[in-house]
Every structure is written in C-alpha cells, then in structure tokens.
Computed example of a mutant assay.
Amino acid sequence: MHMNSAPHLLIEDRAEYERILDDALRTAHDRPDLAAVGERLNAEQLRTMALNATALITSAAAAEYDHFVKVREELRSPSASSVGGADPVVAMGGGVSESGAGFGAVLTVLAPVLAGTAALIFLIVGYVLKMLNPEPSFAETLLAVGWFFGALTAAGILAAAIGLLITALRNSKTQVPAEEAGGELPDEVARAREAWRHALLERGVVPFLRAALSDPSADPASTTPPRRVNRMPKIGYSGPDFSSPSEGSSSTSRPTFTSPDFTSPDFGGPEHLPE
C-alpha cells in the first residue's frame, strides 16, 4: 500500500496518522454520520482513499501539528536540558573535557587488552621453559612478568567497569528526550500531541470519511479525494473547436479559372494570299 508524501507530515509521524485513521474506522459505527461504512465502501477501501489523500487530510490540522513539532524539537535541542546561567559554562567545560574523556576511554579499553595479551604470552613461554631439563634461569622471571601483566589486566577491567558505571549515572540526567519514543512524554509535548491528534481526527479524518461515504461518485481505486472535501479548485481545459469547411462553402469561395481559347492561324501558300 502506497502512502503519499504529505507536506505537513514528517516521516516519523506517519505511523501516528495511520493509527488515528485506523481508530476512526474501527469506531465508525459509534458515529451516526459514519454508520454507512460497509454498505457501499468498506473500511479497507476507505483506508486506501484516506492514505492516498494524506496531504489533504493533514492540512486540516496544520496549525496544531506545527505547534507539536516545534515543542518537540525544543525538547530535543541540547539547550532544553540546561538550567540556570551557569549551564553554558558547564557545557563549555564538558566540551573541553570531552577530548580528555575520550582518550581516557580508549586507554581504559586498550589497557586490559594489551596487558592480558602480554600476560598470556609471558605465562605460556614461562611454563614451557619450566618443562625443559635443565630449566633455564629466566623461566621464573618470565612467569613473574606474566603474573604482573595479569594483575594489570584485572585492574584495567575493574577501572573500565567503574568508568562505565560513572558514564551511565552521568547520562541518566539527559534520558527524558530519549524516553519520548517508548515512555511517557513531558506534559507540554503530550498536550501538543493530543491537540494535534484531536484536530486531525475531527477536522481531517472524519470529514473526509463522511464525504467519501456520501459521494456516490467516489472511486476507492482512485487517488483523487472525494469532490466534497477537495478544497482545491478544479481547473478544466477544453480544446478549441475546429471544424472543416463544408463542400458547399469551398465550392462557392474557390475562384474559377477558364482556359483561354486559342485558335490556330490560317497558313497557306502564296496562292492564298489576300488580294
């Protein structure tokens, strides 16, 4: 099923538009003006027509939708999480320390890996040398170095775990925008969203369905919305009338030409000369 691209609807809100449409069709029999669903047009045909007319339907609630998008974007912007006049300083400080935090994070990740690799190599070589007879004198040294790197590996893993815990606690303060998709919305965004949903349903979806049910010429397979809800004037063009001239007029208006009469001169011999 194809859904037209609506100028007043972002991609992330198209699923919400479809949910509103489906709810309206599911509860259509609770509305007296939509009780005719299923008689001439069924719910699936009406849904197809409404999806093809997405731009027209959503334009009925364009003001509420613009306000909803504006409030949502303000919540998502980085400045929404700042409180007080000291926040720009904190943000600048965070930007300065980000590079240091990034290097520290890389070091925290690489240190256990490198130390663990070194510990494994030294321990394997040390234990292999201890099996030789006679045992080399530096076998014990290699084992000691291996266990030292093993201790560094354990310390690095512990430091990484602590760093991850601190990062999770620090980022938990900015989780409100991230919960928008699955959790509860902030009050202002929720009110703006509900106002848009109500306006879209009452001024867009329901009037469209009502007009489609009452329009006997509505074609469910057509991408053209019903005439009664089409607010754009239909401009028609008709070709000019060209008629071929009739035979009678052509015969009267056409000039006639007659060929001149040519008579041959009389030629004769000298005996025929005039006297």
Rank of each mutant, 00 (worst) to 15 (best):
G182N: 04
A43S: 13
P274K: 10
A80H: 01
V189Q: 05
A154V: 11
A192T: 07
E140D: 11
E194N: 09
P240F: 05
P112W: 00
I11H: 08
L132D: 10
G84T: 13
R31G: 12
H2G: 14
Y127C: 02
T48I: 08
Q45I: 04
E184C: 02
S217F: 02
S246Y: 02
E98N: 10
I57K: 03
I20P: 04
H29P: 07
H2P: 14
A192G: 08
R203I: 03
G183P: 02
V206C: 05
H272Y: 12
V176M: 03
A211W: 00
R19G: 08
I121G: 09
G183D: 01
L209C: 05
P32I: 10
A168C: 03
F267M: 15
L129S: 05
V125C: 01
L75H: 02
P186H: 00
A190P: 06
V128D: 03
T108C: 07
H2C: 08
A155Y: 00
A60K: 01
L110V: 11
A154P: 04
A28T: 02
G102A: 14
R191T: 11
I121D: 07
P260I: 13
L201E: 12
S249G: 11
E179G: 09
Y237G: 07
V128Y: 07
A168H: 13
E73K: 14
V205P: 09
F68L: 01
I11D: 13
T263E: 15
N230Y: 12
T141G: 01
G93D: 06
T153H: 04
G116N: 09
S238C: 11
E202T: 12
D33R: 06
T117S: 14
G102W: 14
F103S: 14
S246N: 11
I124N: 01
A199C: 05
L185A: 07
T117N: 11
T48F: 08
A111P: 03
T141L: 05
G95I: 11
T252D: 01
A155R: 00
A60Y: 00
L129F: 06
A168L: 10
I121S: 14
F262K: 03
F103V: 15
K234H: 13
D215Y: 01
D187K: 12
T54S: 14
A218F: 06
P88V: 10
T141I: 02
L46P: 08
G126E: 09
S172M: 08
F138P: 01
M131W: 08
A36L: 05
M92K: 13
T258H: 09
L123Q: 11
Q45K: 03
V205C: 05
P216V: 06
V145K: 02
R14I: 11
P226R: 10
N52R: 09
K173S: 14
P32K: 09
E44Q: 12
T54N: 05
L169P: 05
A62T: 03
G104K: 15
M232C: 13
F103T: 12
F122Q: 01
Y17K: 00
G156S: 05
A105S: 06
L129E: 08
A181H: 06
L164P: 01
G236F: 06
P255V: 05
G163L: 11
